[in-house]
Structures are given as structure tokens and as C-alpha cells.
Write a protein that binds this DNA or RNA. Sequence first.
RNA 1: GCACCGAUGGUCUAGCGGCUAUGACUUUAGCCUUCCAAGCUAAUAACUCGGGUUCAAAUCCCGAUCGGUGCACCA
Length: 579
Amino acid sequence: MLELAKRRGFIWNSFELYGGTAGFYDYGPLGAMLKRRVENIWRDIFVINEGYYEIEAPTIGIEDIFIASGHVGGFSDPLTECQKCNEAFRADHLVTDVVDNPDTLSADELTEVIGKNDIKCPECGGKLGKVYEFNLMFKTSIGPGGKRAGYLRPETAQGMFVDFPRLLKFYRDHLPFGATQIGKAYRNEISPRQGVIRLREFTQAEAEIFIDPRDKTHPKFKEVADIVLNLYSQEGQSTEEMQKISLGDAVKNGIIAHEFLAYCLSMTYRFLIRVGVSPEKLRFRQHMKDEMAHYAADCWDAEVLSERFGWVEVVGIADRTDYDLKAHAKQSEKELSVYVSYDTPKKVEKFVVKPDMGVLGPMFKGKAGKVANALKALKSEELSGDVIEVTVDGEKIKINKDSVKFETVTEEIHGENIIPHVIEPSFGIDRITYSLLEHSYFEEEAGKEEGIGEEEVEEKRIVLRLPPEVAPVQAAVLPLLSREELIKPGNEIVAGLRKAGILVAFDDSGTIGRRYRRNDEIGTPYSITVDYQTLDDGTVTIRDRDTMKQVRTGISNIADNIYDLVYGRKAFEDAGKRI
RNA sequence: GCACCGAUGGUCUAGCGGCUAUGACUUUAGCCUUCCAAGCUAAUAACUCGGGUUCAAAUCCCGAUCGGUGCACCA
């Protein structure tokens, strides 16, 4: 598979000319188109059908963002280098024998522990240097002078959190709403391996959906409740059992936390199947309690079975609660909340204390404000005596009850400010693209050729059964023989298809069989063959990649015909007369 | 990052001290060909990089880079 991908121009190692660098891959001519089509299907589902508009934020973020997100502090590993041989080691791993929880220690604390316990370089016994944090973000500086730190974003999500106030206005202050982003993210992995599974630069498609924390239902949940998924729940993982269960039942039984999350699983499922992931090689795995971030309410990964890498996480779907907005609110000192009005205004009984400032002011002068605040904090029973006592700055102060009025008032409240919860489906586009290539790859025995003598020769066919919608080349036009009278009408068909926006290849070299196989190998779903009958009656044949069957149809509406086939609006049998 | 293994045309591969470096497929040009890759003719194209040993290195040694596997890390 990988050999094919490289040879036919899907993916290959970056910078090969200079020996290559781990963690970087190029998409070739076919791969880039394939990936683009995958992204467009994602847009169709999330942006067009769900209405979560796409935004585009910079790939470089300022330091504040990543302080808030925790990436500056937490997205790193403590390293120490040997002064003698310059080897780098994980500092927390060197001290596991002397400390109980080394990963809770700071770099300075680790340096101290190493010093006190006289820990030496495991390689050469040399002295170890100061421990420093190796951050997994690519750091850069903004503007000259290097004063202002910037980081290549390690995920696209933060760009959407940071835009929350603007997005809220765009959606006219209504929950729920969502924003999406498809773009590059960067992680300076210490040791990336496993091909495109772990990259230093990769493409994410993420949605941040802001919902009312008190209402995690989904209006369209009924439409998807019957979808049966392969779930690998927390409970299931303890017994290593997957279960096929409908989303409706999964929510009812409390396996999935709520409808909204379950709905996201359904979107994810439909997306992955549509781009070409095999349903039987797809499962949804719930994060274990200790694996989940402490703030997450529930989290599910879509995992795809890969022949090379086993189960690979391709999508993460998390209920991140209000963690991110709170973090950015704190860092930016701005309020990030939504005013939500009640259906009917609530009547709330409220106990109000009204200190008589005309008396208290002159009496306490500078302290008056503090005294008043202390009084306001009191409960009704504490105010019942003739003399009221409060403590201000450690000093007990007695106040005559006449100086304080209090009452219970009934107020009408029309709504409140709430911090939305965030549902985050996060897709690894590179992993998905790789997976569908793997799942589409088939080597099969195709027909039987009569060999020399009596024996039959089994013939191998490599075919990429990509869904027509994602296939980079959507149709091939092939003159049966490379002769001018057949090439000419072929070229006219090509021009017509191109006008209709279909990516079409023309090929007249070698035998027809060879050209069919070449197109099978890159997943071209339909091949149009011009033969001598075309010259007589203006018809051509269309060959279906998967079945190798052919139909004959007129040239006049060939572009519409192919378009309908590619986008699934017509079955192959209906595209013409069967041969 | 550690340990072990590997790196030869576009792809797969032979060669394991001796100098025009195997072979297959692919590709290109042409011939032939009336529907499922291997018919004919020709052409293009490779020893990962840097040091060392040697009269001589694709071959032996060291290092780097990349890749595979295990550990670690990561999701």
C-alpha cells in the first residue's frame, strides 16, 4: 500500500532530496486532491448541514493563548543533559527510584533531587546538567528583537475559543452555536515514527460547539438514535468487549453521557464511512476515567483498525465543559459568558441588607465601606438582635440595629449569564486519509486468462476502491486504440467533462487493459472508452472500477451522467444500457 | 532519546574488497493491437550522506540522516 502511495503520487516523505526529516510528509498530486475531497466532505457535514461556520485563525499564536490553554506549562517533558557526553534524558524517569511521583515535580525540584541523590548520566556516568522543560510546541518570536514569544499552534481549537466573543455576536447571542476550522497544527515530537500517524505538522479539522450546560439534548437526535455503532466503553474495556448498540440505547443506558455527544458520534460515523473507512474496522472507544482530562465530562475516540498500526485514534470527541472558556476568561480578564433569558421570568426572594450610610459614614469614616460590606454579608438571623456584631480586619465592631435596615424583597430575574460548555469533535485528517487508503486497497484475482497450453493463469489486479466522491481522478477517457479517429472524439469528451468540473484523465498509451489497470490502481471510479461504434452511433462505454462491468450510453449527456455517478445520484446500472 | 536491524534506478531486488554494478516491473518513443496489465524494437534511470582503512570500498570500520522493530514518549 505504502509502495503504491509513493509510486503513484499520493504521499511520500518530505525533503527526500536532502535525506528527509522524520515527522514530515508531502501529499503528492493525487494525495493532495484526495485530502482536499475528504476535507470538503467534512465541510459538507459540519459547515453546510450543521451550520457550524468555518473560520481561519493564524497558525501562530501569542504566548497568552497557550498560557491559558496550559500548553506553555503542561505540554512539555523535563529533560536533562549530560555535561560530558551531551546525551539528553527524561529527568523524571531518572528519579523514579528515589521519588514517588516524579511527574509532579518542577524542573527546579528535579534538579535538586538529582543533585541530592547524586544521580549520574546512565550512559557515561558524567555529571548531569540543570533540568529544563522541553516544550512540544515550536517556538518562534514575533517581530524583531525576539521580545515577544509566539508558538506554532499545537491544535486549531484555541483560535476558536479566543474568538468566542466575536462568534457569539455573529450568532446573535444564541446558544447553541459552533465554529469549525480546518488547518495545520504543529507539535515538535521528540521521536515521531509510524509514518503519517505521528507528524510534526499535521492537519486538523475541529469543531467547537458551544452549548447550554443545562441542556445537552440535541434537536436532531431522533434522526440518528437508531444508528448502531461499535462501542468500546469504559466497562467494555475492562472485559475487552465491544458492543454494537444504537445511539438511543447508549444514551438511555448512560454509556454515552448525553444526546449532544452521541449526535457528534453519529456525525463522525457518517463522515468516516462516507470518505471510505470500512464500518467493520471502526469503533468508538471511551476514554477511561484516569485517561480523561480532569475537566472533561465524557470523551470518545473514533478508532480505525489499520493493518500496519493496529487501532489508531483518528477522531476525539469530548465534552470539555466550561474549562477552556474559563481559562481564557481568567487569563484575559474578560468575561466569556452568554446571557440566557428564562422562558418565564423567575421570581426570587432575596434578603437585602441596607446599612444606613448616613449614620455609619461619619461614625467609621475610612472603614465605613468595609463595615457596610460585612453587614451585607450577614444572614437574617444574625441581624435579629438589638446590637449587631461584625468583624472587620480582625476587629469586632458593635452596631446599633437602628443603623441597619433589612428586608426580604421579591425580584424578577429574566435570565442569567452562563458559561457555555464546549463539545469538541477533533479530526486528524492525515490519519483519516491514510486509513481510507488502506481500507480501499485490494489485491484480487481478476478473471482468468488462457495461458500457454491448458493451464489457466490467475491474474492479479490492484484496485483502490475509493468512494467515487473522494477519488482524485474521477473519470478516465480512453480511446480503445491509439488512432487518430478515436482520439479526436475522446478529446471532445474530455473537454466536456472538464467544463462540468470533473477531474478527468486522458490516456491512449499501451493496451486498453493496461490503462484500465492503471486507473484501477489510483481509484478512478469510471472509465469511458471510445471505440469504433462511437463513430457509428455516438455512444461510448462506461466501465465501473469495482465490478469491471460496462454500460453503453450516448455521448451527448456524458458529462451529466458521470457527474451523477460520481456524486451518488445515479446507480451504475442506470447510466446506460448493459453490455 | 535508547537497543537491535536495515538503506542499490520511479518500485522491488542481485551483488558482500577488484573496477562497462544484476534482473524484473514501471516510464518514454515507435511498431503491433477492435475491451481488461506481462507481443516486438529501442531509450532513460541507482550504490543515502560524511569521514576512515586499503593499491582498490556499493562491499570493511566510525559517525550522521532516514526507515523498521522493541522500550520510552505521544494520541
